[in-house]
Nucleic acid binder design. Structure first.
Length: 270
DNA sequence: GTCCAGGGAGCAG
DNA sequence: CTGCTCCATGGA
């Protein structure tokens, strides 16, 4: 007997598959999510979410089903460039995902792709995590990871980063990251092995709720050059500065729409 | 076989 | 500070 939640203007499959969150499994219209120590089942019927394994408050936070997100999207619609892109992806939202899970996930993301990241986290959980119901959680923060086991999760050269960063991720540091402002969190994250400016921005955006975070990967850089004056956007840092000046604290949401558009149009972009 | 993927670390200039 | 190479690995 699933619980229900009205979520007008939300697109569950679009959001889940948009490269923010990796620990989901699809079966027809049903999605199984393993996050925050829980196993959640959820599906969407029209504007309604039918779910089990958690409460409404948790799901609203996870999918950011809050008025502020809609207001930010409305503000972005006033941008003449974005107003042509956003309507293609109605219902796409920037999530608010567990911090430790997001850190491990995006360490795996470097020079990889979304299906492989999902496989890495699935294997890492199964080989080295803790069981909940019939599924597996990622190893806990602070836990000493075995490099050989992390390598068996096919994480490649990222294994040493996962081992060392997980050792450094004490409760104290996680709390620090969660309470600091954007520049402080970004700087602290960049001190961790395997985390540079781009991955730090992904964590700031998808977990810490810093709206001004603007991760620039190869897709975003190509798309920005195509959509805006390509001359000034010579590197990632300049594309990020351009975005933050143009969209302020809505930049992160803008990024997610541009990312989705860039993936769809990648063959047409240079 | 070759190329690319939600990059970062290390190093040369 | 900017630009280059190397790092494992799966999939196209």
């Amino acid at each position: 007997m699933p619980l229900q939640l009205e979520a007008p203007g939300f697109d569950l499959p679009l959001t889940l598959t948009s490269g923010q969150f990796f620990r989901y499994y699809q079966d027809e219209d049903n999605y199984l999510l393993v996050t925050d120590g829980r196993v959640i089942t959820v599906r969407q019927e029209r504007s309604k979410l039918l779910f089990d394994g958690t409460d409404e408050q948790h799901l609203r936070r996870l999918f950011q089903l809050v008025p502020e997100h809609d207001l930010a999207t409305q503000r972005l619609m006033k941008d003449p460039v974005l107003s042509a892109i956003i309507p293609r992806y109605t219902g796409l939202r920037v999530m608010r995902i567990n911090l430790h899970e997001t850190i491990l996930g995006f360490i795996c993301s470097s020079a990889s792709n979304i299906p492989k990241i999902r496989m890495n986290l699935h294997l890492l959980s199964q080989l080295h995590g803790t069981q909940v119901q019939e599924h597996w959680l990622l190893p806990a923060p602070g836990k000493a990871l075995d490099h050989a086991i992390v390598t068996k999760a096919k994480t490649g050269y990222r294994a040493k980063y996962l081992v060392e960063t997980n050792r450094l991720l004490t409760r104290k540091l996680l709390t620090q990251l969660q309470t600091a402002d954007y520049p402080t969190s970004h700087a602290l994250l960049c001190e961790l092995p395997g985390i540079g400016p781009k991955i730090a921005d992904c964590i700031c955006l998808f977990s810490l709720g810093h709206g001004e975070a603007f991760p620039v990967d190869v897709h975003i850089l190509r798309a920005m050059r195509h959509l805006f004056s390509r001359a000034r956007l010579t590197n990632e840092a300049r594309a990020k500065a351009f975005a933050q000046k143009r969209w302020g604290k809505d930049a992160g949401i803008a990024q997610q729409f541009i990312f989705q558009w860039a993936r769809d149009e990648r063959s047409r972009l240079i």
